[in-house]
């Protein structure tokens, strides 16, 4: 589709919720310490948040939504749509959004469904709900974005759930988008077992040692680091430039550039290629890791919620990753609510 503009859509607010439990990436066996320090330094991730066994992504998103609804003083019966963008559903089926419709006490007239997107998800989420609102058929909607992807032993991923509120408003400034997909790279980040191509079976529970000497089962996420790095650093900078040209925006006119928090090597390369000053590019890698599709909203909450509440701000947001999929949004925010980070 390439570039597009949505009118009549107001960004009303956003809330983020992370688990209380923290995991330090430096908490490893003494003989692995030096190697882990090098890894941590390079990926820029020192601490992550991890759900306890009983906690799902939807539990975090539910709490974020309750807080946002209270802050906005929105009535539940006013909400026309509830979209969940996650790869960590409560169940493979039915959709988590429908379960949350009931749990949140929303009306039966609510449109509710899930979207299977990960790290790239936030710009797509805004575009999807925004398109429904721009068409004028629904007035108020919520989109919940995030994942539960942290594990004790791998150093990248961290858990978070977020809720964003959009509303029909003919006076709203336009939102602009550049959204892309390249399925030829679907193997770059994949959970190969458990779907219909390879249904779960006994042999999948037997761990095998990979080339780095790490024991894995096919139930573990497989991530081709070099492919993801090349994809991100080659595709994202031109996409951001393209959207800014389309919007007629200069880097000076943008207050903050929010990139998916992948890892420091990827994010710094993207920032340098776009010649952006670090103060305009907030990061939460250090203490929140890679929170998948939630990383853009989590960074907004953790780093810039006060400036966002203080006055009008122009943001460029860029999500990229699993799919492969990458999307950029230019959003003007004014008068929106950004509650403090919730820990649950």
């Amino acid at each position: 589709m390439g570039m597009s503009t949505l009118r009549n859509v107001r960004y009303r607010g956003m809330a983020s919720c992370v688990p209380k439990t923290k995991v330090s990436n430096l908490d490893v066996a003494p003989h692995l310490k030096q190697e882990r320090e090098r890894l941590t330094r390079n990926i820029g991730i020192f601490e992550r948040r991890i759900c306890p066994r009983w906690q799902c992504f939807s539990d975090l998103a539910f709490i974020a939504t309750e807080k946002l609804l209270a802050d906005l003083a929105w009535q539940r019966e006013e909400i026309d749509a509830l979209i969940v963008v996650t790869q960590s559903p409560d169940y493979l089926i039915p959709a988590t959004a429908i379960i949350l419709q009931d749990r949140l006490g929303l009306s039966h007239a609510t449109i509710a469904f899930d979207v299977n997107l990960g790290c790239s998800g936030y710009p797509f989420a805004l575009h999807l709900l925004g398109s429904m609102i721009a068409a004028g058929t629904i007035k108020k909607g919520l989109v919940l974005v995030g994942d539960r992807s942290a594990s004790e032993h791998e150093p990248l991923f961290s858990d978070a759930g977020t809720a964003t509120a959009l509303e029909y408003d003919p006076a709203a400034p336009p939102m602009m988008f550049d959204l892309n997909s390249d399925g030829s790279g679907y193997r770059a980040i994949i959970l190969p077992v458990g779907g219909h191509r390879e249904p779960p079976s006994f042999q999948h529970f037997i761990p095998t040692k990979d080339e780095n000497g790490i024991w894995r089962t096919p139930y573990d996420l497989q991530l081709d680091g070099t492919a993801v790095l090349s994809f991100s650093t080659q595709r994202v900078p031109p996409a951001v430039k393209r959207l800014m040209e389309y919007a007629g925006a200069t880097a000076d006119s943008v207050d903050y550039f929010l990139f998916h928090q992948a890892n420091r090597m990827i994010n710094e390369t993207i920032r340098k290629k776009l010649a952006l000053p670090p103060e305009k590019v907030p990061s939460t890698l250090h203490d929140f890791g890679n929170t998948s599709g939630a990383s853009i909203p989590v960074t907004m909450t953790a780093r810039i919620r006060e400036p966002l509440e203080a006055g009008p701000k122009r943001l460029v947001m860029s999500g990229f990753g699993i799919g492969l999929s990458w999307g950029t949004a230019l959003v003007d925010i004014d008068g929106a609510r950004f509650p403090e980070m919730i820990e649950a």
Binding site: R38, L39, N42, I43, N212, G225, T226, L229, S230, T233, M265, T269
Partner: peptide
């Protein structure tokens, strides 16, 4: 290792 490969690509 794999981290070094990332550094070299960058």
């Amino acid at each position: 290792d794999s981290l070094a490969a990332l550094g070299v690509i960058v």
